[in-house]
């Protein structure tokens, strides 16, 4: 029996959260720069997204960038932001094809302007989709979220 057949479809998690770690180490193992690992990680996101839709998972939250990640070398941070902008812009039609709605959590005020533009555009263009909500945690940390919630 294949793995997927061992899954009880009626008891699938409704919401899965993932800390996507290891891009840098993966790149190192392949003799590449860290950024290459991040762009390779995008492929894994695509695959997991499709698998979640197939299983009927309703929400997928991905830890894409933490409030602490700004402390990484500037080159990596800039590269990550560019990758984010490009990926979000390029994936909108794919998200729509798969009936996926894009959302985000985190302090967006510190994200680059073009990142917010693409993010808001993608959110707007996918807001009617209801197979799966993809929630990107961008400039997110739980302590920021909880502190922020107490201020309201």
């Amino acid at each position: 029996m294949s793995l997927v057949d061992q899954i009880n479809r009626s008891k699938c998690p409704e919401h899965i959260a993932i800390i996507m770690d290891g891009n840098g180490r993966w790149a190192q193992q392949h003799g590449e720069v860290r950024l290459f690992g991040h762009s390779s990680g995008v492929e894994a996101v695509r695959e997991v997204l499709k698998a979640c839709v197939d299983l009927g998972v309703r929400y997928l939250t991905l830890y894409a960038f933490s409030t602490e990640n700004w402390n990484r070398p500037k080159e990596e941070v800039d590269g990550l932001m560019n990758l984010m902008v490009e990926t979000i812009a390029n994936e909108v039609s794919e998200l729509n094809d798969n009936n996926i709605r894009l959302r985000s959590i985190g302090d967006s005020s510190r994200l680059p302007v073009d990142c917010n533009i693409e993010l808001n555009k993608a959110k707007e263009e996918t807001k009617e989709n209801d197979a799966l909500d993809l929630i990107l945690a961008l400039n997110y940390s739980a302590r920021w979220e909880i502190t922020n919630a107490t201020k309201k």
Binding site: P13, H15, I16, A17, I19, M20, D21, D133
Partner: peptide, 11 residues
Amino acid sequence: LPDPELLIRTS
């Protein structure tokens, strides 16, 4: 959103 039932961390 409902709380995540499952949290995965790689690496």
